[in-house]
């Protein structure tokens, strides 16, 4: 045996101090009132109308941007699969590159494009059309989410799609299947693990973001992430912030469980 169990001790301490105790402290604050007693009020505060509205909008925008990413990414993954090998390497490179750029800068780029005095409006008014209000709308936020998270959808789907055996597809055609059937019976079912991990990697950051909504929503549109962030940074009400975080975690865990049921192979590879 190379190793002694004791080698894991720093790691175990780190898990306890860095993950378990901090999560427990969210639970502690979430069920504690300002005067120190036990309460459900912080968790139930999610049902306040402004909080519910923010949660609903977050879910809606996250679903919309996940679906858009999926619609763009799947054909992209198929094209990548079918293009020649060398070129494939180049195309993958081109998709990974934006992921290496700080996502705040990438989000800022859309601010520059969509602003009233921004690039797109300058082009619009140059053609003689009236300037559009594009910033601070839910649409701008969705655009930002799609832009930031699209590579995280393309890569896992490409990963599974590229491993589908060409012979399977040829066999299906030989046996008389049409294109639609090949997709619905072969390609789509076999790419489920990639789709599932792609959805996880887009949906959860989109659901919990406060940065994109802050930068492209101009602070006028509150998602649940914004509400929680403000409880911690502006209102300093950690009790309420923790309570709302707990409810949000329930949504995260629920969405993961639902997604895992679709992925029968278990543990899809992330990248």
């Amino acid at each position: 045996m190379i190793a002694k169990k004791s080698y894991s001790i720093p790691f175990i301490i780190w898990i306890i101090a860095g993950t378990l105790v901090p999560l427990a402290s969210i639970a502690y604050y979430g069920f504690t009132s300002r005067d120190g007693g036990f309460t459900f009020a912080n968790v139930l505060a999610m049902f306040r109308s402004d909080h519910l509205q923010a949660l609903g909008l977050s879910l809606l925008l996250a679903v919309i941007s996940t679906v858009i990413c999926l619609i763009i990414a799947f054909p992209m993954a198929m094209v990548l699969r079918e293009s020649k090998y060398g070129k494939q390497g180049f195309l993958i490179f081109v998709i990974i590159l934006p992921m290496w750029m700080n996502f705040l800068l990438r989000t800022m780029a859309w601010q520059v494009l969509l602003e009233r005095q921004g690039v797109i409006n300058a082009l619009i008014s140059a053609v003689g059309l009236p300037r559009q209000e594009m910033m601070n709308t839910p649409g701008a936020i969705v655009l930002g989410m799609v832009y930031d998270f699209l590579p995280f959808m393309i890569l896992p789907i490409y990963n599974t799609v590229s491993k589908i055996d060409e012979h399977l597809i040829e066999a299906a055609y030989d046996l008389g299947a049409g294109k639609a059937k090949v997709y619905s019976k072969i390609i789509f079912p076999l790419s489920v693990p990639g789709i599932v991990s792609g959805i996880t990697m887009v949906f959860i950051p989109a659901l919990t973001t406060f940065v994109i909504s802050n930068m492209l929503g101009g602070g006028k549109i509150n998602l649940i992430g914004n509400i929680i962030e403000q409880e911690f940074t502006i209102n300093s009400n950690w009790y309420l912030g923790s309570g709302l975080s707990l409810v949000m975690m329930v949504f995260i865990i629920a969405s993961m469980l639902i997604l895992q049921r679709f992925d029968k192979t278990g543990g899809a590879n992330l990248i």
Binding site: A17, G18, V21, P205, F232
Partner: peptide, 14 residues
């Protein structure tokens, strides 16, 4: 797997 905002808040509270 956890959302970054939750990890961040948890560590901050800790």
């Amino acid at each position: 797997l956890n959302a970054d905002i939750v990890t961040g808040i948890a560590l901050m509270l800790f």
